[in-house]
């Protein structure tokens, strides 16, 4: 009200006063603009450069070595307190059977924990093999990309982890993972997935699935160290990642991956 009445007055404003007003408005605008820019910078936490001294983990699964015993899936559940019900797996094993007629049969009863019974008669089989699945610890991971709050992230060691105290349970990450590696933990009510047994790595131990694999079908190692066993293996073998066209930057390399595998 006061403003509108004052404008009705017919006092003359001299040029210097108008100039002052202009300057003041410009300054105020600049200040507001600057603070707005600054506050938007606060909203975006810049990613820090990766620590060159830390290892950067990658994985190899050798399909030819896997015998489908399911020890990995079982040990994973034991080690990481995942409920035993057959709906929650940080790692599981699939059996692919390509029949002579060209059709593909895929099974994973209880994630392979109890082993596999051959369901297709041997005479109908063209080829058959086991494929252990787990988090690919992607370096351009679709799941961490979509987390709205920053409750899942790639650790400086290249391990994709979940912040259980910060996850809001929106399940967007579960939708975003093309490999089906995430689930909502029925007790903790937050997203859950393979952590590459981060707690074991930090204690100098192997991940539980690798500790209990009888044939050494799985290995992990430092991709940054050009002399590590993992890098040597990758050099000597032709390996593939799952769904390379999705450009997830998967760091889980399969040796002997057949084209039927999704």
């Amino acid at each position: 009200m006061s403003q509108s009445t004052s404008t009705m007055g017919n006092e003359k404003i001299n040029t210097s006063r108008r100039k002052f007003l202009k300057t003041a408005v410009t300054l105020a605008g600049a200040t507001i603009g600057y603070t707005w820019l600054k506050s938007s910078q606060i909203l975006l936490f810049a990613a820090k450069p990766k620590d060159e001294n830390l290892p950067w983990y990658g994985l190899v699964i050798d399909i030819q070595k896997c015998i489908g015993c399911g020890n990995c899936a079982k040990a994973c559940k034991n080690e990481n307190d995942v409920p035993i019900e057959p709906f929650f797996f940080r790692t599981w094993v699939e059996q692919y059977t390509v029949k002579n007629d060209g059709s593909v049969n895929i099974v994973s009863p209880n994630g392979g924990i109890n082993g596999f019974e051959q369901t297709v008669p041997t005479e109908d089989i063209f080829k058959s093999f086991f494929v252990p699945k787990m988090c690919n610890h992607c370096s351009k991971s679709p799941c961490t990309q979509v987390c709205p709050v920053g409750a899942t992230f790639e650790s400086p060691e290249g391990v994709v982890l979940i912040d259980e105290k910060y996850c809001i349970g929106c399940r967007y990450c579960v939708q975003a993972c093309p490999y089906g590696c995430r689930f909502i933990h029925p007790v903790k009510k937050v997203a859950n997935k393979c952590t590459l047994c981060y707690h074991r790595l930090k204690k100098g131990l192997e991940p539980a699935c690798m500790e209990t694999c009888p044939t050494g079908a799985r290995m992990y190692g430092n991709l940054r160290d050009k002399n590590s066993d993992l890098v040597k293996f990758l050099k000597e073998h032709t390996t593939l990642v799952l769904r390379p066209h999705l450009n997830t930057g998967s760091k889980l390399y399969y040796n002997g991956l057949s084209s039927e595998v999704r």
Binding site: L44, A47, N80, A151, T152, S155, D163, H199
Partner: peptide
């Protein structure tokens, strides 16, 4: 370290083996 709770790295290393 990035857009996440830095302390979460410690939390993730905590669980008993």
């Amino acid at each position: 370290y990035g857009h996440y709770r830095g302390a979460s790295l410690i939390d993730n290393a905590q669980p008993e083996i």
